[in-house]
């Protein structure tokens, strides 16, 4: 099984490296930009106050400020761009894990060697989880040494809270996509349906923020539980969110395993 995990990661090492390098480049850019914004903090804060409050609320920018690096990074990077990279990485990793193997016919090689379907699924799942863990750890904790280079103060504990929630957020998306990958024989379907679910969650969260009567919709959205602003600025861990992510991870990972065990695999 270890050999299967290692080979899965080895095959995707270039893709993983590209995602990490591009995200680190964004992080470097924002950290490098921060001192110049911070020096004009008052003017920027005044400008932000003139923005429509509903819009700022909808896009979770109420705490947008240049007072601390965490305020800046949580709004500029970890609320939209960074989750987008993580979502794409999670879905593409899951799509490649099973559905792409069936689509390309290479699954026959994997099913011909002495490894059970359960072990095959678990090894692919663990390889994906490890990929997400490496991406999350590198692209969040890298902010700390980068901030030191630019003589910026950082709240180290807050980054650990963000990394934990972000890992569970990524793993929950990966688990849903893995379930779909175990169900379908074309990776296109995995990408399309997974992306559709994420877009619906994002929209549900915005609608819930804007309209009081739809407020409960937010509980259906991962974006409600992964609030980079609350975590990185205030170090507030959403315990309910963590349980929701853990529940989704367990349910969809098991459902994917059962679906893969039971299905016919014809290439």
């Amino acid at each position: 099984m270890l050999s299967m995990i290692w080979r899965t990661i080895r095959d995707r090492k270039l893709v993983i490296a590209i995602y990490i390098i591009v995200t680190l480049a964004f992080l470097l850019m924002y950290v490098a930009m921060f001192p110049s914004f911070a020096s004009q903090q008052e003017q920027w804060d005044q400008m932000l106050k003139s923005m429509p409050p509903e819009m700022m609320k909808a896009f979770n920018l109420q705490d947008y400020s240049f007072a601390h690096l965490e305020n800046f990074l949580s709004a500029e990077l970890y609320s939209i761009t960074w989750p987008l990279f993580l979502i794409i990485l999670a879905i593409s990793t899951a799509g490649a894990a099973i559905a792409n193997e069936i689509e390309k016919g290479t699954i026959e090689l994997l099913l011909s060697v002495p490894i059970s379907r359960t072990k095959l699924f678990i090894s692919r799942y663990l390889a994906g989880a490890l990929t997400i863990l490496v991406f999350v750890a590198l692209t969040i904790y890298a902010a700390i040494p980068l901030a030191k280079i630019f003589n910026i103060e950082v709240q180290i504990r807050n980054y650990s809270s963000l990394a934990l929630t972000a890992f569970l957020f990524g793993l929950a998306i990966f688990s849903i996509a893995m379930f779909l990958s175990a169900m379908f024989s074309e990776r296109g379907k995995v990408y399309f349906i997974s992306a559709g679910i994420i877009v619906l969650m994002y929209v549900a969260n915005i609608v819930a923020t804007l309209k009081e009567k739809y407020a409960d919709l937010r509980y259906l959205s991962f974006f409600h539980y992964f609030d980079a602003v609350k975590i990185l600025i205030h170090n507030e861990l959403d315990k309910v969110g963590i349980w929701v992510f853990l529940g989704v991870i367990i349910i969809f990972a098991l459902a994917g395993l059962i679906a893969f065990e039971k299905r016919d695999i014809a290439t």
Binding site: E108, S112, A266
Partner: peptide
Amino acid sequence: IRCMMDFIR
């Protein structure tokens, strides 16, 4: 053959 190889059930 696919049944023999347990690709399909």
